[in-house]
Design a protein around this nucleic acid. Structure first.
Length: 616
DNA sequence: GAGTTTGAAACT
DNA sequence: CAGTTTCAAACTC
């Protein structure tokens, strides 16, 4: 086998009828995959010091070249200047595609693909080209699973397939079953083809070089799984696509735009939400995300790109959201897709962070913990109310001592006694309402009054209790009715007067709770208003994490203000005080204020006594 | 499938 | 080197 391969490799040279793409194709060893980086460097250096034959002999032993398909390529009948045989589907499957290869760990093809390029005969050139992951991706179509399906056929009309416009030509392969007109990119027109190649190389010696060059690993600290290794050698110049469509060569190659790019309104940078949305798309969210991408591209929602603002201004938004329902199924079949499958992160998180979602002006202020704490506050307030009334009832109870309890009980006495009982049971009710996890906190012994199904005595689930939030009032209020509190067990005998007692207890609790809520909401509204009126960079804290392609080695930054920004984990912007507007400072303090005003735990987890006596 | 949009390549 | 034109792929309808 090895011998055969060698032979097959040497034969083309003997033909000596093809252009020596040494200059051009040597670069193919520069293929942009991390796995091959070392090999490439080695080959590159070797190629400058060793003869081609040396390289050949050295590379051949490499085990990676042993794939059956590849062997077949190498073993193509090498005869002779015969008309180019149409490639078999198997051969066509050798079409290189960066995304696919990136998805595959195998090293073989990448290393191997470089070697035939130093002296290429058409068939070998084809094979070599096919193996190159850096040849233009457009020349390929692949199945959803990343398996190359077939070579894409060009449709050239005017270029005769002898210009780089032609994907086949630019990929260094003959047209084969293409839909082109006046095609000269074939064996029959080899002379013309060679001329064209020469002309192309004269214009640009690197014309046939891979456009995607290796780059160091993804940037440090990247949280973006979809960051892709590689860099477009020339960079793209996209203006309208946001570099999120296949018009963009970078996007098409599944790489990030780089400092080489001169694109405008680029969204193809690490940390780009639009890009993440695209790459993390799920089957169920394809359309939505594509819409998001379209919207992002059109700038409808605001560009997080780092493009030239001027150009952005020039953009026409006449088609804003029009045609937004486009179903870009290509996203499923695109090369990127397979790669992204490996790079997927949470769609949800991506979407949550997406700009396309409504962002409350309270975002970053009102935290989940605040809500929890608020609930806790209600419990505290309920306790407070309970205690208050308990003291009251104790007094009354003492007054009652020695007295005989008559059937016609004094209303106030009964009220106080029942009130005391009521405290306990109602306290439990309050707890249950406020926290499903605290059902048994202090009212378990009195479950008949709060955790029991009124009808059959079965315990009610916390969820049911929660759903009954408003029901008990009715129940207790209806205590006067004969069956109003049938579930209250031993208290049934007192049911005729319970309503009044609970009403007072409720009134007290409600007063305290509502006061707390009011204060809390007031603070919330204030903070929200402040944040809303703040400058965007200050108000939005999610921009700080976005990293943009570097320009001249420097990381591009969308806004100057975002560059030195840090963000608290609660979403509040942390910046040097001197850079903060009073509003920003106010917002920074907002959470603390909220806690203070409503008695939420402070940052140290310490409960702050609620300020409930401050009335407006 | 026709028409439009887009951006690379080619050209001036 | 910048601006314009040409071209074909990508995209939309």
């Amino acid at each position: 086998m090895e011998q055969d391969e060698k032979n097959s490799d040497f034969q083309p040279k003997k033909l000596a009828r093809q252009l020596d793409f040494t200059g051009a194709y040597r670069g193919l060893a520069n293929v942009a995959l991390p796995e091959c980086q070392d090999a490439q460097k080695q080959l590159e250096s070797e190629s400058q010091t060793q003869s081609h034959s040396q390289l050949e002999s050295r590379r051949h032993p490499e085990p990676q070249i042993k794939s059956p398909e590849h062997s077949q390529l190498q073993l193509q009948p090498q005869p002779q200047p015969q008309p180019q045989q149409p490639r078999s589907p198997l051969q066509l499957q050798q079409q290189p595609l960066l995304p696919q290869l990136q998805g595959r760990p195998q090293l073989g093809p990448m290393v191997n693909r470089s070697h035939p390029m130093y002296k290429l005969s058409p068939p070998t050139l084809q094979a070599a080209k096919q193996e190159s992951p850096t040849s233009r991706p457009r020349a390929n179509i692949e199945a959803k699973d990343g398996t190359p399906k077939k070579k894409k056929q060009c449709n050239c009309k005017s270029s005769q397939c002898l210009k780089l416009y032609c994907e086949c030509f630019s990929a260094g392969i003959y047209c084969d079953n293409c839909n082109c007109i006046s095609c000269q990119n074939n064996v029959e027109n080899e002379a013309a083809r060679q001329e064209a190649v020469v002309a192309t190389l004269e214009r640009n010696p690197f014309a046939f070089r891979p456009k995607i060059a290796c780059s160091p690993r993804r940037s440090r600290g990247s949280m973006d799984d979809s960051a892709v290794v590689g860099k477009h050698s020339k960079g793209c110049h996209c203006k309208k696509s946001g570099c999120l469509k296949k018009y963009c060569e970078c996007f098409q190659a599944s790489i990030l735009c780089s400092e080489n790019c001169k694109c405008v309104s680029c969204k193809n940078f690490e940390g780009s939400e639009e890009r993440s949305a695209l790459f993390h798309e799920d089957h169920n969210t394809t359309i939505y995300i594509q819409q998001a991408a379209n919207a992002a591209i059109s700038g409808a929602i605001g560009s997080s790109g780092y493009g030239i603002p001027l150009a952005s201004k020039k953009r026409k938004y006449g088609k804003l959201f029009s045609g937004i329902a486009a179903k870009d199924q290509s996203i499923h079949t695109s090369p990127q897709c397979q790669q992204e499958n490996n790079l997927k992160a949470s769609v949800a998180s991506s979407l949550l962070s997406s700009k396309f979602k409504y962002r409350s002006s309270l975002a970053g202020i009102l935290q989940l913990q605040d809500i929890k704490d608020l609930c806790s506050l209600f419990v505290v307030l309920s306790d407070k109310a309970t205690k208050t009334l308990a003291e009251k009832s104790d007094k009354l109870d003492r007054q009652k001592e020695g007295e005989n309890v008559e059937i016609s009980i004094d209303l106030s006495t009964q009220e106080s006694r029942d009130g005391k009982k009521g405290h306990i049971s109602q306290n439990a009710i309050s707890d249950d309402r406020l926290s499903w996890n605290q059902v048994d906190r202090d009212g378990t012994s009195d479950s008949g009054s709060d955790g029991t199904n009124i009808d059959d005595g079965r315990p009610m689930s916390p969820r049911t209790l929660a759903l009954m939030c408003d029901e008990p009032d009715t129940i207790f209020m209806a205590a006067g009715s004969p069956d109003g509190v049938a579930g209250h067990g031993q208290n049934t005998s007192q049911k005729s007067s319970n309503g009044h007692v609970f009403t007072r207890l409720y009134a007290e609790q409600e007063r305290l709770v509502l006061t707390g809520i009011r204060d809390f909401l007031n603070r919330l509204i204030t903070c929200g208003s402040i944040q809303e009126t703040m400058p965007l960079p200050l108000a939005k804290n999610d921009m700080g994490s976005q990293q943009r392609p570097a320009e001249n080695g420097k990381v591009k930054s969308g806004s100057e203000t975002a560059s030195h920004k840090e963000v608290y984990d609660n979403g509040i912007i942390k910046s040097p005080v001197t850079q903060l507007s009073p509003e920003a400072i106010a917002v920074t303090c907002c959470n603390k204020d909220l806690s203070l005003k409503v008695g939420l735990p402070d940052g140290n987890g310490e409960k702050i006594e609620p300020i409930t006596d401050r009335e407006s």
